[in-house]
Nucleic acid binder design. Structure first.
Lengths: 191, 191, 191, 191
DNA sequence: AATGAATGAGGGTTCATTCAT
DNA sequence: AATGAATGAACCCTCATTCAT
């Protein structure tokens, strides 16, 4: 066959993330995933111990991909504003390339079926950004308020924007997104 | 009995919102709700046609409550900045009074089991705020960018902040919240 | 309704023991039990945590019933021969009253899904008979050979006889059974 | 390779009997057998039509082996007591050589998945012994009671003894086993 | 000949919903 | 009006069997 022949495992992951993003973990049944992935229901269990295992693998894989995007060409030596630009752009880029991943991560990051490992990975992602904010505060580029709160403002704004891009409410291309980055920065910049 | 004797219906709604907020609609079973409400499982069906009906009633009641909070003493004649303050404060107040409601609304507002009516109510809520932003843009108080995008920034930021307050990550009392309101405003104010 | 109205729980147990005796635990499905008991499959789970729980409850209930039969009017002061008679008769009586119970006990007593409690109950049953044999050996009524081995001979013989009665191969009524009791006794009596 | 290289077919049978004896037919999965036999799951289906076919082949092969053991050097001309000795010894020998076979046969001889052929082979085995008992009765060496019942006593006793040997409860070596043979004989001998 | 990935029917179990009490 | 026992459809998962390699 000349069809794109990814592995079944990947087919399953690809089908699952769409459904999890759209319907949530508990609203998605294993047969739904099997149908969407065009595999038998039993096949899913050759690659994943159980449904929870699948969602955790997916969560970690996507979060790692986001993390890699973030760390790629990270401008360690630049100003915090430029680092902020890099972060915003990375997340934006990630959301554009993998339409469902960011929404999936955001809507599942507090669920009780996430393993400790999944939760810690998410925490380390937040921690990474927290450090940038902290340094920005020390350097006087970012206002001095409880760091977590500032993360909340920016994280909430970015994720919501990208949810809207995904929903088609707003357009995810260049001029608007650059302006929205400025908006987010303005929320936390000093002065 | 001298206990607070609200109606069974209210007991059910009160129990359900906590569970829906914490575990999601699909992660919450009807027996769970019945137990938490201290009623028989069958009793729920005397007040609600089915589980979907219950979640829609809850969604609309809570959203209407939020809406009422918003409209109460709304400063129609004031500056957009002052209107923004009112909106921020209203949502904040709502979230403080009813710990689970805002998170419940936000985490369920895109679910497929919401009726058209529920969705339209949510849309009208967003539309109400959109109009404020639009007027602000006309008056030169708010930057001129696609209105929906600005709503997204502010809505995303506020909801995330209040989720963190709920989780105990940040403190929801006065000085910090006032500053965070400024942050949100800075994100969209003109110049 | 004027039908015999035992509890559903008892209906389930009554249906299950027949199936377990005839097809074994693993050869019996929960729907089979539900059909035979004329209850919904879900009803079984109102009374038993899971299938393993059901089989253990059944095992212990039946073994306790056998034990009670054994202890009822037990001739503590009589000769070992008379005690042997009582034991044989008790097991025989038990097997006649509850056609499937003895075969069920015997065919499941070594299964891995039995809980420690079930196993210990069975051990205590065997131990009870062992003590009789031991005393018989001390009194010179029973030959001196490893006690467990003698138990094996008699237990194996009795159970096999009663399996055959159950299968219709032999008749379980008085004259024959008395003679078979003598056979079993002759196997272990002194001289 | 210098390893004992029996056929795959034999590897499968050897693995299967251990599992069937320990876990029962329904408690044993085909992948379990494949793993234990160190063959692919599919390979089993090159040698056996399906799982039922495998268990029937095994049942018949083992029963034939037992039968052969029994017929080897059978003392046709000797006294019934000597024939009894031969039978007891043959079964004992068989059980010592092939630890799981006798238990497998006994625990599966009434199962519904046995083919008519398997059942008839088992019946013919019992019938063979029955004839010995019958002649013994005619010759006045064995008590006159329903033949099947006497078979039950002796068969049940022997099988139970050998199960206990297998379980390690009693020792299967000479002095004890000879005494147990006497026990069994005493159960059915005339006078 | 041999494999083991793939399948889907059917297993044990849960749960939204009904209904006799 | 209120209950919770009862139900059976549908859940997650297993496993006998097939088949491309």
């Amino acid at each position: 066959m000349t069809e794109t022949k990814k592995s079944k495992r990947q087919d399953i992951l690809d089908a699952a993330i769409v459904l999890f993003a759209e319907r949530g973990y508990n609203g998605t049944t294993v047969p739904m995933i099997a149908d969407a992935a065009k595999v038998g229901a039993g096949t899913i269990y050759r690659y994943f111990d159980h449904k929870e295992s699948l969602v955790n693998v997916l969560f970690q894989e996507k979060l790692n991909a986001l993390f890699e995007q973030l760390l790629k060409d990270y401008p360690t030596e630049s100003s915090i504003r430029e680092q902020f630009h890099h972060i915003f752009e990375s997340i934006h880029h990630f959301a554009m390339e993998d339409t469902h991943a960011l929404h999936f991560i955001d809507s599942h990051c507090n669920e009780i079926f996430l393993t400790k490992e999944s939760q810690e990975l998410f925490d380390s992602f937040i921690e990474y950004i927290s450090n940038v904010v902290r340094v920005g505060q020390e350097r006087g580029e970012i206002i001095v308020l409880q760091t977590e709160a500032l993360i909340g403002v920016v994280y909430g704004a970015i994720v919501q924007i990208l949810k809207m891009v995904r929903a088609g409410t707003i357009d995810g291309s260049s001029p608007l997104m650059d302006n929205l980055e400025d908006c987010c920065w303005n929320a936390i910049k000093a002065n």
